[in-house]
């Protein structure tokens, strides 16, 4: 039981980063980015390239992958979303699925369909207080918690963090106060690309890399973000943890391959009962 909860929390942490990225772009740009999964895949494969082709050690390759993910996200924003400014959120939504398709297939074109893994040494799982803990789980735990703490500090205490919150709250008012929207949007995309890439690497460590990996995570990531309340980034993290534990506990009654069905059921219930999310976002789109 405790083992299940622990595994669930780690799964939740894997979902937390892209869910945070999704809620971040949604709160500032007011559209749901369906390319989040593809961004995750691109970042994971970029890190794979640095790791195996260039021979960098994995931590350095991960940083490289995050930088690549940030660059791709900013580039896509310049090429696509900036040009569609002023269009409705639905148009941007459809554009993002086009972006997802394009990105995923660039990866598939270059790297092929077969699953791949990072060049890391295998380690025996640890035993702590009766829990079985994998090396990958420890890595995930530390990496995600460190990054989340960093993001929280960024939001709370820095100029750009305040600017992001201001634009998310009320873009017109922020503009009146002289906050440049363009700069904030670029930072938001860079952050979101880097977060997705890191999640991609961690998921790749946990399982394997394949071009579909991001797509299979799209549903849980959206569920987590909706569970937290789509427009509040930090609540998405809490949503991810709840979903992770729920998915893990559900394996006691449902077959493990039905994880995504659990995510869908959780989403359906939350939308029917409390569409503003568990942690009560201040506003809700109707």
């Amino acid at each position: 039981m405790i083992q299940l909860v622990f595994n669930g929390l780690v799964t939740g942490l894997l979902i937390a980063l892209p869910a945070l990225a999704l809620a971040l772009t949604f709160s500032v740009l007011r559209f749901a980015n369906y390319a989040i999964g593809a961004m995750l895949t691109v970042g994971a494969y970029a890190a794979f390239g640095f790791n195996t082709l260039a021979g960098w050690p994995l931590p350095l390759a991960t940083l490289g992958g995050m930088a690549a993910g940030a660059l791709v996200a900013v580039g896509v924003n310049e090429l696509v979303y900036e040009r569609l400014r002023g269009c409705s959120g639905v148009t941007l939504l459809v554009a993002s699925i086009g972006v997802a398709l394009a990105l995923e297939n660039v990866v598939r074109f270059i790297a092929g369909n077969s699953p791949r893994g990072y060049a890391v040494a295998l380690a025996r799982p640890l035993r702590l207080f009766g829990l079985r803990i994998n090396f990958e789980q420890i890595t995930t735990l530390f990496a995600v918690v460190a990054v989340l703490a960093g993001i929280w500090v960024l939001f709370r205490f820095t100029r750009i963090g305040r600017a992001m919150r201001a634009v998310a709250d009320n873009p017109d008012l922020a503009a009146v106060r002289g906050i440049g929207r363009r700069g904030v949007v670029t930072v938001v995309w860079a952050l979101s690309g880097a977060l997705a890439a890191l999640a991609g690497v961690l998921i790749g460590l946990d399982a394997t890399l394949d071009p579909q990996m991001g797509w299979t995570y799209t549903l849980p990531v959206f569920t987590a973000a909706i569970l937290g309340g789509l427009a509040s980034p930090m609540a998405a993290v809490a949503g991810a943890l709840v979903l992770g534990v729920a998915e893990e506990l559900a394996t006691t009654v449902l077959a493990p391959q039905y994880r995504n069905i659990v995510a869908f059921l959780v989403m359906a219930v939350i939308l029917l009962v409390r569409p503003s999310g568990l942690f009560g976002a201040r506003w809700l789109t109707r």
Binding site: L93, L219, I226
Partner: peptide, 12 residues
């Protein structure tokens, strides 16, 4: 709810 939600619900 708004259209964003129907998109993800149908996908789910």
């Amino acid at each position: 709810l708004s259209d964003d939600y129907l998109a993800i619900v149908s996908l789910g």
